[in-house]
């Protein structure tokens, strides 16, 4: 139980959004293999503070892989080497002693660095605010069982809805595309009968907003799926594109994303 390892960290340090960044090296010795990766960083920060040095800023909150706050790149892999895992759920038992780890923030124009490993992902919410919802007011809902949804459809909708908006898909994509995030949000609603009335208007607006926010296009390298801690499939991208093209070329509702639509 008392297994410990030593690791060398090379961490991107950037004191502010506009400041120049650089890498700095830190040695962490005697790290418990039972510690999570972020707990290891807590230990490093405690050490830095005790030495009067500035701790490393990184986003984190729930530390159980569901809030989507945490995330940075470890040796070129978003959220580290384990698939289906956020960096807060990554444990040190995964690494051999003597490992050299390079920690970098998500790199994307639409995710500007705030400090060190922390980036600003509010662009995701701009996408969601462009129609990523069902337009129902409270008080209008029919009885829950009045809308039948097959078990498979509900399950598939859930698969898409499981997206935590961490941004790993953008970080891992060579084009910094938000296609997986946006398509997952689109796909969740498109799978359900409740989502049909706004289906095409939604996809048209959200895709256009994604582009406006400065994310890249999809080159189908499928890095996003591999990096996604929730294992969201690239199939949602195909479905999203199909709906988008249908919205733009066939349906009335999706023709223009700036038709003064509100709510």
């Amino acid at each position: 139980m008392s297994d410990t390892i030593n690791v060398t960290l090379e961490v991107w340090r950037q004191p502010g959004a506009k400041a120049q960044g650089r890498f700095e090296r830190y040695e962490m010795n005697g790290v418990s293999t039972h510690a999570s990766f972020l707990e290891m960083l807590d230990g490093l920060n405690e050490k830095l503070i005790n030495e009067g040095k500035e701790p490393i800023a990184f986003e984190h909150d729930c530390r159980e892989g569901i809030c989507g706050s945490c995330g940075f790149v470890i040796n070129g892999q978003a959220h580290g080497p384990d698939r289906g895992t956020t960096v807060c759920q990554l444990h040190m038992r995964r690494f051999k002693s003597g490992t050299h780890l390079v920690l970098e923030p998500w790199r994307a124009k639409a995710f500007p660095v705030v400090r060190d490993l922390m980036v600003d992902r509010t662009s995701f919410d701009k996408i969601q605010a462009a129609g990523g919802y069902n337009g129902v007011n409270v008080g209008n809902a029919p009885d829950a069982n009045a809308i039948l949804v097959g078990k498979e459809a509900a399950g598939e909708a859930f698969d898409a809805a499981a997206c935590i908006g961490c941004g790993a898909c953008v970080a891992a994509c060579k084009n910094a595309s938000a296609m997986l995030f946006t398509s997952a949000k689109v796909g969740h609603f498109a799978m359900l009968p409740q989502g049909q009335p706004e289906r095409y208007r939604r996809v048209a607006r959200m895709f256009d907003e994604m582009e406006a926010q400065g994310f890249g296009a999809c080159s189908w390298t499928q890095e996003c799926e591999a990096a996604c801690p929730k294992g969201i499939s690239v199939k949602w991208i195909s479905r999203g594109k199909r709906d988008y093209l249908k919205a733009k070329l066939v349906k009335d509702s999706g023709q223009s994303s700036d038709d003064g639509f509100a709510g």
Partner: peptide, 10 residues
């Protein structure tokens, strides 16, 4: 452009 000026080291 979407990637930004600073790329990944690894």
């Amino acid at each position: 452009k979407a990637r930004g000026a600073q790329g990944y080291k690894v």
